[in-house]
Design a protein around this nucleic acid. Structure first.
Lengths: 213, 213
DNA sequence: CCAGAATATGAGTAATTGCTCACAATAACT
DNA sequence: AGTTATTGTGAGCAATTACTCATATTCTGG
């Protein structure tokens, strides 16, 4: 009775305020344990305990550990996308050279929303079964950036926008992620500006930005 | 008796040919199970069974699952570095423009050594405890590339070689990884050349390669 | 061939896990 | 108040796990 998970979605809908609070407590407890103790230690029993909720209640709303973690991922992705979308809106009001600066800076900002959680999700959460959601953010960002390039297509030298979006988004995401996670000193101070400047310069050079819209 | 792992290193040295074969069988079985069934299913009992070795023998040479996986990672890293070092030797005989092409192509080649294993290691193996070895390859590659840049410093516009190496290696690794793992169609045919060409172009443009050594 | 060292075996134990279910408490509605 | 739906509880079972140890087998050097 161990090997088979049923599904990732919640079991029952929370209707009353009380149950909605329970669900929220469970999701928050899951995030807390992920950060403090790691993915392995995040058992359903442990999560229920941390949430101050009985194990039975947990299974009333979530079919298992995967679903809890999936909920945490979803929430975190949502937070990230908010930062990205806001930066995108700002970038669209600027010429593309400045816009790219904007987006790179936003990528760093997004990683600073909750770095510890972001790290656990990236390094310990297996991209397996219903937990593939970790990659979902990447796809959304890709689409957004691809549309951005489309809007500025005549200010660019590159022509294959699919390939270009893939290269830009993958690079920016990897660079900001690695910097925030593995080089914390870059976060504050002048080193950060340099990282943003250098990354933007690389992206702009690659895209072949020529003065234009 | 669950939560405490002792260490990651082997317990006993394999002296005779027989025991060396046992150790090899165990490591290979671990890799096979990782690929076929995933990290979760790779229990010590399961690995011993797959290797055709008793569980007792397994614990004679490895203190636990972590050590087995660490051995697999080490072997895989070694294979990767072999590809990278060979490409590096070739790159050093060429002007830097061509050399970068070389290195990017090698990065793709490295990911094709054993893509399935590479994927499991990247996506399912928690970067935890003694399993951080997954990141070791990145550091070695970084050092190598940093030295390469040093050799060509007067053919480049960039001055902060540490930052430059970080940006280049992180980008190239992320791009080739993502392409090989998530866009398999890029592997063969003309799309691959384009990826190499575009990536190299980006890197060269960033480094500010001007005709020189 | 033999003695001791090296290697191999696998049933068995303790811990932990995911998860159920019979029941209790609370809320909502009439 | 009484009835029903919603929500909450936690002891406890079954499965799985990591790991040990007493024993058996195989090798090596003499």
């Amino acid at each position: 009775m161990l090997g088979q998970k049923r599904s990732t979605r919640a079991r029952k809908k929370a209707a009353q305020a009380r149950s909605r609070a329970t669900v929220a407590a469970l999701v928050e407890a899951t995030a807390r344990i992920l950060v403090r103790e790691g993915f392995d230690r995040a058992s359903t029993n442990r999560i229920a305990e941390e949430a101050g909720v009985s194990i039975g209640s947990l299974y009333q709303y979530f079919p298992g550990k995967e679903a809890l973690v999936a909920a945490v991922i979803e929430r975190h992705n949502h937070d990230l996308m908010q930062v990205v979308r806001q930066a995108m809106a700002e970038a669209e009001r600027e010429p593309i050279g400045v816009g790219i600066d904007c987006l790179v800076a936003a990528a760093i900002e997004a990683h600073r929303v909750h770095p510890a959680l972001h790290r656990v999700l990236a390094e310990q959460t297996p991209r397996t079964g219903e937990l593939e959601g970790v990659e979902l953010f990447h796809r959304e960002a890709l689409n957004l950036f691809r549309a951005y390039l489309e809007d500025h297509r005549d200010a660019l030298v590159v022509t294959d926008l699919d390939l270009a979006a893939f290269i830009c988004v993958t690079s920016i995401e990897a660079l900001t992620h690695s910097a925030v996670i593995h080089r914390p000193k870059i976060l504050s101070g002048e080193a950060r500006q340099r990282l943003v400047a250098e990354t933007s310069r690389m992206i702009a050079a690659y895209l072949g930005v020529r003065g234009g819209s």
